[in-house]
Design a protein around this nucleic acid. Structure first.
Length: 382
RNA sequence: GGGCAGGUGGCGGAGCGGUCAAUCGCACCAGGCUGUAAACCUGGCGACUUCGGUCUACGGAGGUUCAAAUCCUCCCCUGCCCA
C-alpha cells in the first residue's frame, strides 16, 4: 500500500509510492483542493495536463450538496465527477473550525446549521465514515476537532481527547468494512484507506500523546492537522518538524492545509509526504501567480504591457500561449478565462514543484535543491 | 428669440448656509488570501506635509454673511420644449 522508495540521507525527506484503488501516487505529492467535487475553474483534463495524480474533496460540502444519495446514484464520486484518479475526502473537521459559529460540538458529534440554507444536521464520526464509504473515495479522513491559535492547554487537550475518541469510533466503522459503491473499489484489492489526524495545537506533549494514541488505534496514514490556523509561520515549521519525527516511518504522512511552496519544501525536509492547500486555486482566481522565486500579482499595473508569460520557462498551457499583459486585461475586465489560466498555471507550478522535489530526493541533491529554492525566493517587485 | 431643467473630484451622482476635501457607486491604484460559505476581502484615491496640519477646490466673475458647493446679481455652457 505505501512503499518507502528512498530516504534522503541529509534530511528527513522521503520518496514513496502510495497505492490506492484508483492507482498509485508518487510522494511527496500535492493534492489540488476540489471541495465541491471540482477543482474550481479546472476540468479533469486540465488536472491531468498539470500532472495532478490525486485531488481532495470534502465530505461536509458534498453531504449538503448535492447529497450523498445523488453521488451514490451516479456510482460514486469518481463516476459523478468523471475523475478516474485517486481522491482523498476530507471529513468536514475543518468546517467544524472554519464555520465554528454554525457548529455545536458534543462528544457524540457535531450539530450544525447548514451554511447554505440554515437547515439543521447532526454528524457523528460514524456517519462521516459512512458518508465517505458512499462517496467511494480512496482515502478517508475521520471527523476531528481542530482548534484555533492561540489555544489554552485545557481547551486543546479537551479537543484532542474528543478527536481521539472520534478516531477510535471511525476506525471501528471501517473494520466492519463498507458496502462500497464504486465498481473500481469492488474490483480492486484495495480497500478505502483511513488516515488518523494528529491534533494538539502548539503543545509538544499533546502532539506526542496524539501520535501515540492514534498509532495504537492504527491507521493507513497519519495527518498532521490543526496547523496554519493563524499561528506564526515558524510555529508551523516547529510543530510539523516535531510531530512528523514521531510518526511511524512506514506510513504516509499528510500535512493538512499547507501551504506555500516554501512551506512545502520545508515540510518535505521534515519528512512529510502529502500536502493540500487552497492557495494555488484561490490565489489564482484572485490574480496571484506562483512563479520561480516568489509570486506575481498579475492585476498590478506594472504588467499592463508586459509581453512575457506568467513564468518564463514554465511549460503550462497558460505560459505557452498567453502574456502577462493579456492575463491582466482578463482580470481587469472580469473575464473568466483569467481565473482559469492563473489557476491552471498555479496547479501546474505546484505539481512541477513536487516532481522536482521527488527527482532531487532520488538523485541525492534535495538539500541543495531546497537551499536554492530558499535563496532564490524574493518578495514581489514594487 | 421665449419657457423649463441643469452645470460638484477621472465618470455617474448626493449634498442645498457652519460638523465639507465634500455620502455613495463605478473606474483606477496597492495589498492580503495556507484540510475553500472566498471569481473574495482590506486599504488608498485634490496638492503639500516634521502626519498635527497647511493650501487650492463644487462652470466664471462679483456680492451678502462671523461663515457659501449651498443665498443674490451678471456672464458662459449643456439638455429638453415652444417659436
Amino acid at each position: 500500500m505505501f512503499t518507502l522508495i528512498k530516504k534522503d540521507k541529509d534530511s528527513k525527506a522521503r520518496l514513496g509510492k502510495l497505492e490506492t484503488a484508483h492507482g498509485a501516487i508518487n510522494t511527496p505529492c500535492f493534492m489540488p483542493v476540489g471541495t465541491q467535487a471540482t477543482v474550481k475553474t479546472l476540468s479533469n483534463q486540465d488536472l491531468i495536463d498539470c500532472n495532478s495524480e490525486i485531488i481532495l474533496s470534502n465530505t461536509y460540502h458534498l453531504y449538503l450538496r448535492p447529497g450523498i444519495e445523488t453521488i451514490k446514484a451516479a456510482g460514486g464520486l469518481h463516476k459523478f465527477m468523471g475523475w478516474k484518479r485517486p481522491i482523498l475526502t476530507d471529513s468536514g473537521g475543518f468546517q467544524v473550525f472554519s464555520l465554528a459559529t454554525l457548529m455545536k460540538i458534543k462528544d457524540e458529534g457535531v450539530e450544525f446549521a447548514s451554511h447554505i440554507d440554515g437547515s439543521r444536521h447532526f454528524l457523528t464520526p460514524e456517519k462521516v465514515i459512512e458518508l465517505q464509504q458512499g462517496l467511494g473515495s480512496d482515502i478517508m479522513m475521520p471527523l476531528d476537532e481542530p482548534v484555533s491559535y492561540p489555544c489554552s492547554k485545557p481547551k486543546a487537550e479537551a479537543a484532542l481527547e474528543r478527536t481521539h475518541d472520534w478516531a477510535r469510533r471511525s476506525k471501528k466503522v471501517t473494520s466492519h468494512q463498507s458496502p462500497v459503491t464504486s465498481p473500481e473499489l469492488k474490483q480492486s484489492d484495495h480497500r478505502q484507506l483511513l488516515f488518523g489526524i494528529v491534533q494538539g495545537s502548539s503543545y509538544q506533549d499533546l502532539r506526542k500523546r496524539s501520535v501515540e494514541e492514534l498509532v495504537k488505534i492504527g491507521f493507513d496514514g497519519y495527518a498532521i492537522g490543526g496547523v496554519s490556523v493563524g499561528e506564526p509561520e515558524t510555529l508551523i515549521y516547529e510543530v510539523t518538524d516535531y510531530t512528523a519525527a514521531l510518526l511511524p516511518e512506514e506510513k504516509p504522512r499528510y500535512l493538512m492545509g499547507v501551504g506555500t511552496p516554501l512551506d512545502i519544501v520545508e515540510a518535505v525536509s521534515q519528512g512529510v509526504d502529502m500536502f493540500d492547500c487552497v492557495m494555488p486555486t484561490r490565489n489564482g482566481r484572485n490574480g496571484t501567480a506562483f512563479i520561480k522565486g516568489g509570486k506575481l500579482l498579475l492585476r498590478s499595473s506594472r504588467y499592463a504591457t508586459d509581453p512575457k508569460p506568467i513564468d518564463e520557462g514554465c511549460g503550462c498551457f497558460a505560459c505557452k500561449n498567453y502574456t502577462r499583459s493579456y492575463i491582466r486585461h482578463l482580470f481587469n475586465t472580469e473575464e473568466m478565462l483569467g481565473l482559469r489560466l492563473v489557476s491552471l498555471h498555479n496547479i501546474y507550478f505546484y505539481a512541477t514543484l513536487m516532481a522536482e522535489i521527488r527527482a532531487a530526493i532520488l538523485e541525492n541533491r534535495f538539500p541543495e535543491y531546497k537551499k536554492n529554492i530558499k535563496q532564490n525566493h524574493k518578495p514581489p517587485p514594487g
